[in-house]
Simulated assay, not measured.
Amino acid sequence: MNRNPPRDVTADEIETFRRYGVVCLRQMFDADWIARMQDAVDDAIANPGPMALNLNQGMKGKFHGDSFVWTWQPDFRAFIFDSPAPRIAQQILGASERVTLFFDTLLVKEPGSQAVTPWHHDQPYWPIEGEQVCTVWTPFDAVTRDSGAVEYLVGSHRWGRRFQPQSFTGDSRYGASLEPVPDIEAERDRHEFVLYETEPGD
Rank of each mutant, 00 (worst) to 15 (best):
Q73Y: 02
H121D: 11
A11Y: 00
P50K: 13
I34S: 06
I92S: 00
R190Y: 07
F63P: 00
R98P: 00
G21P: 07
F193V: 05
R36I: 02
W70Q: 06
G148I: 08
M37Y: 02
D183F: 01
L106C: 09
D141Q: 09
L107S: 08
H64F: 15
T138W: 10
M37C: 03
A52L: 03
D141W: 09
S83L: 08
V194I: 15
F81S: 11
G61W: 04
D189F: 04
Y20R: 13
M28S: 00
D146V: 05
Y20M: 07
D183P: 02
V133G: 14
W72S: 14
D43H: 12
F168W: 14
G112M: 07
N4T: 13
R162I: 12
P111S: 08
Q73M: 11
D146P: 03
A11Q: 12
R36N: 07
T100M: 07
D141R: 04
W33H: 05
F68I: 09
P5S: 11
V9F: 02
T100Y: 11
G201F: 10
H191V: 03
G21A: 09
E129C: 09
E187T: 15
P127K: 10
G65Q: 04
D82E: 13
P6D: 09
P50E: 12
P127I: 11
A40E: 03
C24W: 04
I80H: 09
A142W: 05
W119V: 03
Q38L: 02
A40D: 00
C24M: 14
